[in-house]
């Protein structure tokens, strides 16, 4: 085998589209847009009255309630996967902070 010739970089290759995950990303974006439209239409304002937020205020309903655990989790996984970020934002929608 001619190692010299095989070691020359191939500068002509092109990227392959990764359809399945990109399709999922597009679907997620469409779903998010729909959700944003519903909220913009005003359904979010009256969704839950203040007196009905007992369960939403429970710590098991708050996204990333333990901030340190969430950070450590992201730290571990981002070092074992090729796609970091986009985990979301801590907190809940109870509006009772």
């Amino acid at each position: 085998m001619d190692w010299r010739s095989s070691s020359e970089p191939n500068f002509c290759s092109k990227s392959r589209p990764t359809r399945s995950a990109q399709g999922l990303l597009r679907s997620l974006m469409a779903a998010s847009f729909l959700l944003a439209l519903l909220i913009a239409a005003g359904c979010g304002r009256q969704a839950v009255r203040a007196s009905e937020k007992e369960f939403l205020a429970d710590q098991i309903m708050i996204f990333d309630h333990d901030g340190q655990e969430a950070v450590a989790d992201e730290h571990v996984l981002s070092n074992r996967e090729g796609s970091a970020g986009g985990r979301g934002t801590a907190g809940g929608g109870c509006g009772c902070n």
Binding site: I39, G44, V48, G86, R87, T89, G92, G93, C94
Partner: peptide, 22 residues
């Protein structure tokens, strides 16, 4: 940059949508 929207849907359900770019 990250943008998130968190929404109470019912007294027992909430959702969050986050868009992240880097």
């Amino acid at each position: 940059v990250q943008a998130s929207l968190t929404q109470n849907l019912t007294p027992t359900t909430n959702v969050q949508v986050s868009l992240y770019g880097q």
